[in-house]
Structures are given as structure tokens and as C-alpha cells.
């Protein structure tokens, strides 16, 4: 039952992370999802991966998010999303129902199998050695990618596009101020 509770809580947290208005709240809920997942992992017997998930998912990634938000700014976006919300919700619900309907009723309840005694490191560097080697490649490619993306060169805000955005902001701000002034003018 504990597992069910934790999993349900993780789904709720995930939803809150998606719904959160501010980015920083969203990142914190995501850290919560990660921590709950780590707990669930350890209840499934996967202790080592639980520790890794806790330190990488809840720790490192959250720090990176917070850092990115402090660089990029955390302004709540007003207005509607690209796709109307009920439509996205409907699509996702439909998809979840189909998948759940396919999987849950026919799912065989497997007999309890005694857990193996092998450790994570033995498996990762032994039978799954090729995966481990490829992880090194992924990390190398990722580092090269980051170096390329974060290279400091050229003017930060480039040309026409940035000017257009800035002008749009200016217009919105002006409209807002006018609205506010109108609003104040009425009660007087």
C-alpha cells in the first residue's frame, strides 16, 4: 500500500509541476517527483538506483533548473497556450485510458521471483558493459554540445527579432499602464 500511495503522490506532484505558474515552483515540484520516485525505487529493491536518482534527479537537475531560471528570468506568461487546454487534457486523458485499458485488465500477475544477488556495478560493468561504454560516448557528445551551445560570442540580443520582442513588450506595458490609469480614473 505504501508503494501505491507514493506512486499516486508522485503523479500528483508531476501534475503540480506542470500546472505551476512560476518556473521555480515547477522545478521544486519536479524535485519532489524525483524524490518520491527514488523512494519507490528503493521499495522495489533498487536501492542503488534510488540513491543515484535522488542525487542526480532531485539534486543536480534541480540545481541546474534553479540556475537556468536565475539566468533566464522567471516571468509568468499570460494568455492562452498554443493548443487550447481542454483539447490537450482530452487528448492526454484519452491516451491514458486507452493504454490503461489495454494493459491493466490483461496483465498477468507474475509469481514472486526471488531477487538476484548481483549488484548494480557488477551488472553495469559486466553483462551490460556495452551500455556503460556508450554512456561515456553520450556524456562526451553532451559536453561537446554544451560547449558549443554556451560559447560566448556575438552580441547577446541579436538584431531584428530581439528588437521586435522588446517593442512588443513595450506595447503591452503601455496598454497595461493605460488600462490601470483608466481603472483608477473611474472611481474618482
Amino acid at each position: 500500500m505504501t508503494v501505491l500511495l507514493l506512486v499516486a503522490l508522485a503523479v500528483v506532484f508531476a501534475f503540480l509541476a506542470i500546472r505551476a505558474r512560476r518556473l521555480i515552483t515547477s522545478a521544486l515540484w519536479l524535485a519532489g517527483v524525483s524524490a518520491l520516485c527514488a523512494l519507490v525505487f528503493s521499495l522495489y529493491g533498487a536501492r542503488q538506483v534510488a540513491v543515484i536518482e535522488l542525487s542526480v534527479g532531485a539534486g543536480l537537475v534541480t540545481v541546474l533548473f534553479v540556475f537556468a531560471i536565475s539566468v533566464a528570468g522567471d516571468e509568468p506568461l499570460a494568455g492562452r497556450p498554443v493548443l487550447p487546454r481542454p483539447l490537450s487534457a482530452g487528448l492526454v486523458l484519452l491516451w491514458m485510458l486507452v493504454l490503461g485499458g489495454m494493459l491493466l485488465p490483461g496483465l498477468p500477475i507474475p509469481p514472486a521471483v526471488p531477487p538476484d544477488r548481483a549488484g548494480l556495478a557488477e551488472v553495469l560493468w559486466g553483462p551490460r558493459g556495452l551500455d556503460a561504454l556508450l554512456q561515456v560516448v553520450v556524456i562526451f557528445a553532451g559536453v561537446l554540445g554544451l560547449l558549443g551551445l554556451l560559447a560566448e560570442s556575438g552580441a547577446p540580443l541579436d538584431g531584428a527579432v530581439a528588437r521586435e520582442v522588446a517593442a512588443g513588450r513595450e506595447r503591452d506595458l503601455q496598454a497595461l499602464t493605460e488600462q490601470l490609469q483608466d481603472g483608477e480614473a473611474v472611481p474618482e
Binding site: 556495452l130 551500455d131 554512456q135 561537446l144 558549443g148 551551445l149 560570442s153
Partner: peptide, 28 residues
């Protein structure tokens, strides 16, 4: 020949292509 290994190759290919697509990273 291994399902998970196939995914790892696939993901490594994807990760190495991200910067290549966004190579002109001055261009919005």
C-alpha cells in the same frame, strides 16, 4: 541485437545531433 542497447545507440546518435542542428547558435 539487444533491445535496450539499440535504444542506447539511438539516444547517443540523437544527443550527438542536437548541437549539429543548432550549430549556428547565434541565429534565433
Amino acid at each position: 541485437t539487444d533491445l535496450f542497447n539499440l535504444w542506447v545507440w539511438f539516444e547517443a546518435m540523437a544527443v550527438s545531433s542536437y548541437l549539429l542542428v543548432a550549430f549556428y547558435c547565434q541565429q534565433p
